[in-house]
Amino acid sequence: MLLKKNIPIKYIFGKIKYEILFVAIYGFAIEIIYKNFNITEISIPMTVPTVLGTIISLLLAFRSNQAYDRWWEARQIWGAVVNDSRTLARQVMFLIDDPYDPDQIDGFKNRIIKRQIAWCYALAHGLRKEDPMPAIEKYVSAEECDSLQDYDNKHVGLIQLHARDYNNALKQGWVNPYQQIEMDATLTRLVDSMGKCERIKNTVFPSTYSLYIHLALHFFILLLPFGLVELFGFLMVPVLIVITGCFFLIEKMAIHLQDPFENKPTDTPMLTISRNIERDLKQMMRDKQMPVMVPQVNYFYVL
């Protein structure tokens, strides 16, 4: 997750260094040709690249807006995961009760809450196509780990275990039917959030749309030096680099935001959020073993 402050220029322009190098070489080549061969008959009026640049600007603005909407939706979903995880823990702590066997009930409650912590980590790693088992083994029993082997998506298996325990609590009389319905509604919201994340992950941003904008942008860059060379002379190259650099940065920003679950600094900080959920749920359980704080690397948190 990128922080608001201290983002180095090296990181920003490192994303477009090859594009800037190409533009600089191309600009120098056009300027040398104009100076040495005095070719003025192929100059292009600035109105042509201006109109094309305006069209590309509108397309990039629309694409950036769509990419940001995907990123913001992902963040909203994980905000709902935080709220529903806290709700689940609260319901488990205060709705499930058996005055005749409090020790068994306490173990039952702790098992469900720890499994919810595991679910958050499993979902985060699953969205990034990583094996979640090393991260969740300490939160679930060996028997439950074995049962998860039957599931390709471990977070789905963990929700099933939640549902099984809720049903067992109803049969044992630890909750009444109305309480069980409320607890199941929280599980339903978690499943809904899980499905929304998977939809974003599996829905590819239209490649043809990205390709057309990319080709139009390169065509604009090829035309732009012919319009700038007569206006700026030897200053054409730095002006060209500044203008094209702005376009490339906007395009790169949209590319990074459109996929919020790819384990990049611009991603939704799912593991950081999962650690915060773990901290809150363990405090609700009066557990003293808090998760390790996420290290900060200058301008972003380690995801």
Score class of each variant (00 low, 15 high):
L158M: 10
I159H: 00
Q160E: 15
H162M: 10
A163F: 06
A163K: 15
Y166C: 09
Y166P: 03
Y166V: 10
A169R: 10
L170T: 07
K171P: 00
G173H: 02
W174V: 02
W174H: 08
P177H: 06
I181E: 03
I181L: 06
M183S: 06
R189V: 08
V191F: 05
V191T: 14
S193Q: 14
M194C: 07
G195L: 06
G195T: 04
K196L: 02
K196F: 01
C197S: 15
R199D: 07
R199T: 11
I200L: 14
I200R: 14
T203D: 14
V204G: 02
V204P: 02
P206N: 10
P206S: 11
Y209K: 12
S210W: 05
S210C: 08
L211R: 14
Y212V: 09
H214E: 13
H214M: 09
A216L: 13
F220Q: 05
L222N: 03
L223K: 08
P225A: 07
P225H: 11
F226Y: 15
F226P: 13
G227L: 01
G227P: 07
L228I: 00
L228D: 00
V229L: 15
L231Y: 05
L231N: 07
F234T: 10
M236L: 09
M236S: 13
V239H: 03
V239Y: 04
L240Y: 14
L240W: 06
G245P: 01
G245F: 00
C246W: 03
C246I: 09
I250N: 14
E251T: 01
E251N: 14
K252R: 15
K252E: 15
A254N: 12
I255F: 12
H256I: 01
L257Q: 15
Q258P: 01
D259I: 01
P260V: 00
P260G: 01
F261H: 08
F261N: 12
E262L: 07
N263S: 14
N263Q: 12
N263I: 05
N263H: 14
K264W: 04
P265M: 05
M270N: 11
N276M: 09
I277K: 12
I277E: 11
R279N: 13
D280H: 07
